[in-house]
Design a protein around this nucleic acid. Structure first.
Lengths: 94, 94
DNA sequence: TTATTTGGTTTATAATATAAACTACTTTAT
DNA sequence: ATAAAGTAGTTTATATTATAAACCAAATAA
């Protein structure tokens, strides 16, 4: 009935990030910050956790002269997200 | 896009408790503990939070000679749960 | 009568989330 | 050229949360 909810995804901000990344090829830090409304510090910490978990990859480069951090969901991230959503249904119905 | 998720409900155990209570007239402590697999200590703390939030009511009585703690979802709890589920859909699709 | 079990609560600790402070650099104004 | 302000982040300190362990009171079993 109540399958465990992956604690890495059961976090508002990390879930929002994954939700955004699942729909796109890649997204940069600023895009994620704007879309989620998170503070930069919080976002920095949370994407780091997602990366350590292997759910996203992070690459750093430059946009002209400005630093640019780009995030991309991994296959592992996709399936973890799917599993999380599936588990959630056990709690909220449908 | 990403509505805030009520932090009181965005907790695995509290969500499970609410999920159980939403389907029944009332449920006692032991029933909730068994269904959720939570430790008694954790369950005690979490139902207390739900009660303080006004999402459930807790009444204490006896089952024969044994103490019995009964939980019941409130109208406020029902609508908070509905709002939470609605908000979640913004994150997980559907 | 002394364990053991039941039904919890309280408290201490570990994990998490978050903001605030900081770094490094760029752009703009003086 | 220099100072001030803005951008893109990271690190660190703090508050919040979750959880387990320890505890309590009463009932039941040995």
């Amino acid at each position: 009935m109540f399958k465990a909810l992956d604690p890495l995804l059961h976090s508002e901000l990390r879930l929002a990030v994954m939700s955004l990344l699942i729909g796109v090829e890649e997204a940069d830090f600023v895009f994620l910050r704007n879309k989620t409304g998170a503070t930069a510090g919080n976002l920095s910490v949370q994407i780091d956790k997602l990366q350590r978990a292997g759910y996203i990859s992070i690459s750093k480069g430059f946009n002209g002269k400005m630093p640019r951090t780009t995030c991309c969901i991994t296959d592992e991230g996709r399936s973890a997200f799917a599993a999380y959503v599936e588990a959630l249904r056990g709690y909220i119905g449908k």
